[in-house]
C-alpha cells in the first residue's frame, strides 16, 4: 500500500485494529495522518469549534437571531480545518482527486456512528447538493461521496440553484444572501445534513431552514471539518 497523500510506501503493521477489523488497511502513512487534527479537545457543543466555552460566541449569535434560532440542532465535525486538511480538501474537491476521500473512510464513519447513535435509526441522511453547473465542472459532489462512506441509505430532497462561491463573501454578505436551495420532496423525519466544511454554518442553516419549513422536525449536521 502507498500513502494516498505523499505516495510513500506504507508498511502494514499488525495492531489490534487490523486484527479485529482486517479489512481496515492503512491508506495513509503515519506522518501524514499526524498532520490531521481530530476534534477531541474542548469544543463548542453546537458547532464543534475548538473553544473553552460550551457554546461559542458564533453560536450564541446564531441562536440570538430569531430567523435562525434552533434551525440547526448542532454540527458535529471530525477534524479541525488545519493547513493539512485544507491542502487535502483542495486537491480532492477542487483538483478533483476523487480517491483522496478514502483517507477519511474509517474515521468519518466511526465518528458518525459514535455521535449519531441515538438518531441513526430514525434520521435521514442528506448530503448538501451541488448546482448542476458545478457538478458538471467537478464530476462529483464531495458531500455525497462523504455520505457514501457511512454505508447507510441517503436521500436527495434538495437541489441547489445557485451560489457555491461563498468563500469570497464576508460573513454579513453570506447571512444576507438568498437561500441557494430548493426543496423537491418533503421530509418528515429528522435529517442529518452531510457536508465537507462547516465554515460559518450559513449554507447548512439555509438547507436546514428549508427542510424545517416543509415539516422536518429536527436538523443536524455532520461535516468533515470545522473551518
Amino acid at each position: 500500500m502507498y500513502c494516498l497523500w505523499c505516495d510513500q510506501e506504507v508498511i502494514p503493521q499488525l495492531s489490534w485494529t487490523n486484527l479485529l477489523l482486517p479489512e481496515r488497511t492503512r491508506n495513509i502513512c503515519e506522518s501524514c495522518e499526524n498532520g490531521f487534527l481530530l476534534l477531541n479537545g474542548k469544543h463548542c457543543l453546537k458547532c464543534s469549534r475548538l473553544s473553552d466555552e460550551t457554546i461559542c460566541s458564533d453560536c450564541v449569535k446564531w441562536e440570538n437571531d430569531p430567523t435562525w434560532q434552533g434551525v440547526l440542532s448542532f454540527n458535529q465535525s471530525v477534524y479541525s480545518y488545519n493547513p493539512m486538511l485544507r491542502d487535502v480538501v483542495t486537491k480532492w474537491k477542487y483538483r478533483g482527486d476523487y480517491l483522496l476521500r478514502d483517507i477519511f473512510q474509517y474515521t468519518f464513519k466511526d465518528v458518525f456512528d459514535d455521535r449519531f447513535v441515538k438518531w441513526e435509526k430514525e434520521a435521514i441522511i442528506v448530503p448538501i447538493p451541488l448546482s448542476e453547473e458545478r457538478m458538471l465542472e467537478r464530476g462529483f459532489n464531495q458531500a455525497e461521496s462523504l455520505a457514501q462512506l457511512l454505508k447507510l441509505p441517503y436521500q436527495k430532497p434538495l437541489s441547489r440553484v445557485h451560489g457555491e462561491k461563498q468563500s469570497k463573501k464576508t460573513r454579513k454578505e453570506r447571512i444576507d444572501s438568498k437561500n441557494p436551495f430548493e426543496i423537491k420532496v418533503q421530509v418528515s423525519h429528522p435529517v442529518i445534513l452531510i457536508d465537507d466544511i462547516y465554515t460559518t454554518g450559513m449554507t447548512l442553516r439555509h438547507a436546514a431552514k428549508l427542510l424545517k419549513n416543509q415539516g422536518c422536525p429536527e436538523v443536524f449536521a455532520f461535516t468533515l471539518a470545522r473551518g
Binding site: Y98, L99, M135, L136, G139, F140, S145
Partner: peptide
Amino acid sequence: KRMLAFMPCAK
C-alpha cells in the same frame, strides 16, 4: 495502477 483511479463522473 495507483495513479490511475476510478471516479464516478457526472458528465
